[in-house]
Amino acid sequence: MKKFFATLLVLFSLTGCTSKYSLVTLSNGDCKTNWGLCTVFPNKEVKLYYPKNPIKVAVLDSGINSSMPIFENSSITSYDAIKNKSTTKDSLGHGTAIAGVIMAPLNKQTVQGISPQVKLFDVKVLNDKGGGEINDVINGINWCIKQEVDIINLSFGFQKDNKGLRNAINKAIEKNIIVIASAGNTLGLSTDYPAKYKNVISVSSINKNLKRDPFSAKGKIDFVAPGVQIPVYTPNDKVKTVNGTSFATAFATGVIANILSRNPDADRKSVINTLKNTAKDLGDKGPDQEYGYGLIQFN
C-alpha cells in the first residue's frame, strides 16, 4: 500500500519563526481518500514546522490508547481526571480517534494527523459510555493549566451552562491557552456549552461539498471544519469513518497547532485573527450562524 504523504525535511530561516519544517505534498488520490486533509490544506502542499519547544495540545476526552503502534513515536502524556492517576484507557474509542485526527504521524492507512509534531496531553474526563461529570472536566482543565498547555480540545458539550466550568475555562484563557470546543450534533438547534461561551472557539461540521452537516448545531459558530466521513483510528488499530462536530474540532485544533508551530510567540488574539483572515467564507457573506467566519484552513 502506498504511503499517504510525500514528505521532505528541510531547513528554512525566517525571523521570529521556527526554522525546521517538513514539506508535505498531497496527491489527487490522497485527497479522494481523505478529503478533509485537502480541505484544510487547500494548496495540497504545506510546511509543518517543528519548533524547539513543541506545541502542547490537551485532548480532554475518553482517554487515548497511546500504546497503539501508530503512536509509538509520538509524545503523549496521560492523566485520568476521573480516577486521578497517570494512565488512561479508551474503551469508547472517541479520544483515540480525536488524537489521530490531530497528530497521527505518516502512515499507510490514509489517516494522517493535521499536526503530527505536537506534544499531546491525554486527559480522560469521559467514561466508557461517553458520559461525563462537570467536576471531572473542571479537574482536567485545571490540570492542563498546571501543565502550561497551549491548546485545549473539547470534542464534547453540555446543554446547560455551568458556573464552575465557565470559571475554569476563563482561568485557562487568562493563561493564554486557546480553548476550542465542538458546537454539538444538535440537529440544527443551539450550540452546546462550552462552545457557546464567548471566548471559546466553537467549531461546526461540513461535508465534502462544503455544506453544513444537518446534524450540526447553529447559533454561536466561529468556524467550520471537515466532519463527515472522516477516516479515524479505533482503539484496536483499525480504521473506520465517522461523522460529527467532534472530529471537525480536532481538524481545527490541528490547524491552530500548526499556526503556533510556525510562530510560537503568537498570542491567543493573534492566532484567532489569523484564523479569521485565512478562513474560507461559506454560506451568507461574512460571519453567520451556520458557518461562522468560514472553513478553517492552513496555507
Rank of each mutant, 00 (worst) to 15 (best):
F5H: 14
T7S: 13
G16F: 12
G16T: 09
S22A: 12
T25A: 15
G29R: 12
G29E: 15
C38N: 14
E45G: 02
L48Q: 14
K56V: 01
A58W: 02
A58E: 07
I70G: 07
T77N: 10
D80C: 03
D80Q: 07
L92I: 02
G95N: 08
A97C: 01
V101W: 06
I102W: 04
P105T: 09
Q112Y: 08
P116W: 02
P116Q: 10
K119V: 04
D122I: 04
K124V: 01
N127H: 00
D128C: 13
V137K: 05
N142L: 12
I145Y: 02
K146P: 05
I151M: 06
D161E: 13
A172S: 11
N176F: 12
I178E: 03
I178D: 09
A183W: 07
T186Y: 07
G188T: 11
D192C: 04
K198W: 00
V200F: 02
I201P: 07
S202I: 06
S202T: 06
N207V: 01
K208C: 08
L210C: 05
L210A: 03
R212P: 04
D222T: 10
D222R: 00
D222W: 06
A225R: 10
A225T: 06
P226S: 02
V228I: 14
V228M: 07
N236M: 10
K238A: 00
N243L: 06
G244V: 09
A248P: 05
A257M: 04
L260W: 01
S261N: 00
N263S: 11
N263R: 15
A266R: 06
D267W: 12
R268V: 08
K269Q: 12
V271T: 02
I272P: 05
K276V: 15
L282I: 07
G286S: 13
Q289S: 15
E290C: 11
I296F: 08
F298G: 11
